[in-house]
């Protein structure tokens, strides 16, 4: 299975909020061309889009590695940002450390991580303050 998997890499810039979402948009069009199920495409797109926004607003950018196999789309988002002190708090709906300027852009409602988990079939987050955060998400396609 691993032999015919598709691997993609994206870099999310930390200084240009308007570009956040380009990776999800690109992945979405690739998944459509591959003929993946529409429901799975939507779950991957939303989860990755929220992740991109997080990388842009909280982590000064980061990297996304995607692997598409026969039965799933797996995404690993990694950054060298400030890290998350209390992950369970960060996972609760409505809790946010985003500054007001991020809210004025339409984000920072404390729904990013909960949404990422909600749309993933598998979700894992590892973080260390001052080191960075790695989020792994997988969505089943078969």
């Amino acid at each position: 299975m691993a032999d015919d998997s598709i691997r993609l890499h994206y870099t999310v810039p930390g200084d240009d909020f308007t570009r956040a979402g380009e990776a999800s948009a690109d992945l979405k069009s690739r998944m459509k061309k591959l003929g993946l199920p529409p429901g799975a495409i939507r779950k991957v797109s939303i989860a990755l889009y929220e992740g991109e926004i997080n990388l842009a607003i909280h982590a000064h950018g980061g990297d996304i590695d995607v692997e598409i196999t026969d039965d799933e789309v797996r995404m690993v988002l990694s950054d060298q940002g400030p890290g998350i002190a209390d992950i369970s708090l960060a996972m609760s709906e409505g809790w946010s450390t985003a500054p007001d300027e991020v809210r004025s852009l339409g984000f920072g409602a404390g729904m990013g991580l909960p949404n990422m988990k909600k749309y993933s079939d598998e979700f894992d987050i590892q973080s260390a303050v001052g080191v960075g955060t790695t989020v792994t998400m997988a969505v089943k396609t078969a």
Binding site: S24, K28, R42, I46, L105, G106, F107
Partner: peptide, 10 residues
């Protein structure tokens, strides 16, 4: 802002 369109697209 552009994120409105990106959100609608996703």
């Amino acid at each position: 802002n552009p994120q409105v369109v990106r959100t609608a697209d996703m």
